[in-house]
């Protein structure tokens, strides 16, 4: 997990370093405690696919932001936290105790095109919502060289890529949208 995250974040600056540090912190906290009290079915969560990205919702009623750790390492989204067992006020008698408590550590496999640097999370009304944008416009278009055996000529076909040009449109030479592409 750590290897992957440092691999991904190499040369990406302070944000990546911070993310890695958070990831390490989560690892150390999770590493300290064996799987004690972790229930796989709790908390309920869902990955939603949208046009421009993904959204993960996790039910965390009564959790403060500080009680939850979110990290992305490679294609793994980790959400970990702990809720203390409910304590009624002094002198009160607890008649029922159904709300789950204890530690949890969710691990959610992400689609390949998640832009890890653009991930944001917010907590609202007991729902943790993590927005994961797709890697639009970040990919560098790569030229594909095709060698025509019969004529012996070398033809360069430019892959439109994701850099603004509409996909599927094959433009043999000039592609104004692919400014970051390599010139041959």
């Amino acid at each position: 997990m750590n290897e992957k995250s440092s691999e991904k974040s190499s040369g990406r600056g302070a944000l990546a370093e911070l993310k890695e540090a958070v990831g390490n912190l989560v690892d150390s906290v999770v590493g300290m405690a064996p799987d004690f009290g972790i229930r796989p079915e709790w908390p309920r969560h869902e990955l939603i696919v949208e046009d421009d990205g993904y959204r993960v919702q996790v039910e965390l009623p009564g959790f403060s932001r500080e009680a939850v750790d979110v990290s992305v390492a490679g294609r793994n989204l980790s959400v970990a936290g702990e809720r203390k067992k409910f304590e009624p006020p002094a002198g009160a008698r607890l008649l029922r105790s159904e709300r789950p408590s204890g530690k949890f550590d969710l691990s959610i496999r992400l689609p390949a095109d998640v832009d890890a640097l653009g991930v944001v999370a917010q907590m609202r009304e007991g729902i943790l919502e993590i927005k994961l944008p797709k890697t639009r416009g970040r990919g560098r278009p790569i030229d594909i060289e095709s060698v025509d055996e019969a004529s012996g000529e070398t033809e360069v076909r430019r892959e439109p890529g994701t850099g603004g040009a509409s996909p599927g449109q094959e433009t043999p030479k000039a592609d104004p949208g692919a400014g970051t592409g390599e010139e041959i």
Partner: peptide, 9 residues
């Protein structure tokens, strides 16, 4: 929904 219930005086 899961609930906890307690009773005071």
């Amino acid at each position: 929904p899961n609930v906890d219930i307690y009773s005071t005086e």
